[in-house]
Design a protein around this nucleic acid. Structure first.
Lengths: 189, 189
DNA sequence: GACAGTCGTTCGGTTTGACGAACACTACGG
DNA sequence: CCGTAGTGTTCGTCAAACCGAACGACTGTC
C-alpha cells in the first residue's frame, strides 16, 4: 500500500484524528454518533483510536451522520497567502483571439475546483466542449457584458450577475462589450 | 445503513461505476491498476462488479493509483443552471454599513465551499473573526480598490487582482474606493 | 495450429472488520 | 449510600474483505 509521496502521516491516523475532531466539533458523544450512523460504538471507538482499516460504508455512514463530506475525513489541508496581480498568469494561460483565462488557484491535490480569471473581447464567442461528468461551473461577471451558460440556453450577464450550470454539456462565453472580465469557478466535485 | 435522503442509488454501486469509469478513462486494464495500487485483481474485480464493502485503504490505494481524489469515487454530482442578478441576494444577505455579502452558491451538501459576491463602501473596514481550521478564502477584486487578506499583512488589490489566504486567522476587507466589489470563494475543505 | 500474452472472472484459505455484551469510570439525584 | 444514566473502553463471535492461484476467453505471432 502507500504508493503516495514519502513521509505519509498514515491514512488511518488521519481518519482517526479527523473523525474525532469532527465529532467533537459537532458536540456529540461517541455513543450518540454511533447510534445516529447506525454503527456499533465499539467499531467507532476502534476507528477513532486508529485501529484497523474501516469499510467505506462504515465511514460513509459516519460522515453523513456528521454532516460532513467524505473527503473531510481523509485529507487535512494546509494553505498559505498568495497574491496574483491583474496582469500575471502563472499557469495554464489560455489565450485565443482576445480571450484570456488565467488559472488563479489550481486544484490543490484534493480539492476539486479550479479558479480562473477570464477576460474577453466581443465578437469572439468561446464555445467549450463538455467536460467530465460531474463538473460544475460558476461565473460571476466582473465588468462588461457577456452571454454565458449552456450553449442551448445561454444567459446574458451584467456586472455582478452570477450563473451556474453543469459543465458536462457544451457551454459558451461570449463577450458583448469591450473590457469584459469574469471570475470562473470550475468544480470537478 | 443509508440514513441519507430516500431513493439512494446505493453507495457501493456508485463506487463501482466511478471506479470503472475512472479506470477506463485512464486507459489502463484491471490487472494493471491492481498491480499499480498493490491490491489483488480479484479484489478489484469484485469491487467493480459492485460486490461488498471495500476497505478505505483499498479504495485509497486505487484512487491514488488512478490519480484522482477520494471523493471522485463516492459522490456523483447533479447540478442545474441557476442565475442570480446583480441586485438579488437570495440567502445570507449580510449588510453592515455599506458592506453587502450575497451568498451565491452555498455548500451543496458535499462540496465544502461558499461563493459570495461582496460590495463595500470605503471607510468601513470589515474585520472577520477566524473561521474553522482548514478554511481557505479566495478573493478576486472586480472593481474599485481594496485592502484584503490576513489582518496582520493585508494586500492592496486592484481590479482583477487575486489573493488567497488561510481563513482560520483574523482577516480583513477594506474598500479603498467607491463602488468596490469582489468575488469571494470560501472553502471549508 | 500451437504457443505465449493479456484480458477479466471465479474459487478456497487466511486475515480482519463489524457487531453485541460486558466492562470500568464519572456525574447526578433520591 | 446506592441506583440510574451517561461516557468510552475491551472481549468473543461471526461474517466478509483481501489475497493467491487457477480458470476460460480472446489476441497476435511464429
Amino acid at each position: 500500500m502507500g504508493n503516495g509521496p514519502a513521509g505519509e502521516p498514515g491514512l488511518i491516523a488521519v481518519i482517526a484524528a479527523s473523525l474525532r475532531r469532527e465529532r467533537e466539533r459537532a458536540g456529540i458523544s461517541l455513543s450518540e454518533l454511533a447510534k445516529r450512523a447506525g454503527v456499533a460504538k465499539s467499531t467507532l471507538s476502534q476507528i477513532e483510536s486508529g485501529a484497523g482499516n474501516p469499510g467505506v460504508e462504515t465511514l460513509w455512514a459516519l460522515a453523513t451522520a456528521l454532516g460532513v463530506p467524505f473527503s473531510r475525513l481523509v485529507d487535512p489541508p494546509r494553505p498559505a497567502t498568495r497574491v496574483l496581480r491583474a496582469g500575471e498568469g502563472p499557469a495554464a494561460h489560455s489565450e485565443v483571439a482576445g480571450y484570456t483565462a488565467a488559472l488563479l488557484a489550481s486544484c490543490p491535490p484534493n480539492a476539486r475546483r479550479d479558479l480562473y480569471r477570464v477576460t474577453a473581447r466581443p465578437g469572439e464567442p468561446r464555445l467549450s466542449a463538455p467536460h467530465a461528468p460531474g463538473t460544475v461551473e460558476h461565473v460571476v461577471l466582473a465588468s462588461g457584458r457577456a452571454l454565458a451558460g449552456p450553449a442551448e440556453e445561454p444567459v446574458e450577464l451584467r456586472p455582478g450577475d452570477y450563473v451556474t450550470y453543469p459543465g458536462d454539456v457544451p457551454h459558451i462565453f461570449d463577450a458583448l462589450a469591450p473590457g469584459t472580465s469574469a471570475v470562473f469557478v470550475m468544480e470537478h466535485v
